[in-house]
């Protein structure tokens, strides 16, 4: 076991009572491995969870997806928006259910954090759409969960997190930098990735959570990591919610180039992000206050 992993283990070993992924979501993910599974079959499984179903329907009918007609069943949602969109809304709902509430840590505004996360998800989806990537929903969920490690810290490693936030405020530095100093080199990215593995998230998602601050360290999913890297920075620049600190990290040049964004298009992209983040407000209502 590498030193870093040892240090991480030291922290996570003390975590007690971590929520598990809802069985429904685990089952859906498993079902979708079978290419012959139909929308009706998946829909039936999701519909067994009434609370989840109503939240999913609320999301798929929101301005974020913007389908002109009303979608009345999960199955319809699947046939109209696709399997991935429905799974990603289910995943969002589960995350909000598990981690949405609580949080009174000084200097860390949970609501602002979720706003930033949802904004980053919307921004990632827009960048992915511009790049013509088929997995738009994966980009959305990756953006949404990129900083999920902060919630783990806040909720389960609270004492250290309070110190981290104190230092962030005093020195006006990035959370990451404070974490490295106070958590023995372990960051919320490491914790987020740890959660991802525990929850059986897709490998691409885990890589994004782990590598988005430094895309050069990504391997298989360089493009997706670059997208979230840029989306995080653009969302911070647009001041949508708060990532926990007040800084804008330095953009990675090769990641930015990989996205091939013409500087002349940037104003229209930023506007699109602002509009889309607004449309994604339905997600924000799912966060338990």
């Amino acid at each position: 076991m590498a030193t870093d992993e040892k240090k991480l283990k030291k922290i996570v070993d003390n975590i007690v009572g971590l929520p598990t992924l809802p069985t429904v979501l685990t089952n859906v993910t498993k079902m979708m491995q079978n290419p012959r599974v139909s929308a009706a079959q998946v829909g039936k499984v999701i519909q067994s969870d009434v609370a989840l179903t109503s939240k999913i329907l609320k999301l798929v009918n929101s301005a974020f997806y913007g389908f002109p007609n009303r979608i009345s069943t999960v199955t319809h949602a699947i046939v109209i928006l696709g399997f991935n969109a429905v799974r990603s809304t289910a995943m969002s709902v589960s995350v909000f259910d598990s981690f949405g509430g609580g949080g009174e840590t000084e200097g860390f505004d949970r609501m602002a954090f979720w706003k930033h996360s949802i904004g980053c998800g919307a921004a990632s989806r827009i960048l992915a759409k511009r790049l013509n990537i088929k997995e738009l929903e994966e980009a959305f969920i990756a953006g949404l969960l990129h900083d999920i490690g902060l919630i783990i810290l806040d909720q389960f490693v609270h004492e250290e997190f309070v110190k981290v936030m104190k230092q962030v405020k005093e020195k006006d530095i990035l959370i990451r930098d404070a974490e490295k100093e106070l958590l023995d080199g372990v960051t919320h990215n490491d914790l987020g990735a740890w959660l991802g593995r525990k929850w059986n998230m897709a490998p691409a998602l885990i890589e994004v959570i782990e590598a988005y601050p430094n895309p050069s360290s990504a391997s298989d999913n360089y493009l997706l990591v670059s997208i979230v890297h840029a989306a995080d920075i653009l969302t911070r620049a647009l001041d949508i919610g708060s990532g926990g600190d007040n800084r804008i990290p330095k953009i990675n040049k090769s990641a930015w180039e990989k996205l091939g964004i013409d500087m002349a298009d940037l104003p229209s992209i930023l506007q699109e992000i602002v509009d889309s983040a607004k449309k994604a407000e339905a997600f924000f209502t799912m966060v338990n206050k």
């Binding site: 599974v37 139909s38 929308a39 009706a40 699947i78 046939v79 696709g82």
Partner: peptide, 16 residues
Amino acid sequence: TRADDALTVDVSETLK
């Protein structure tokens, strides 16, 4: 085919 039976993961991948 009914909508909910037609679009399997397989079919939607093929279509894409």
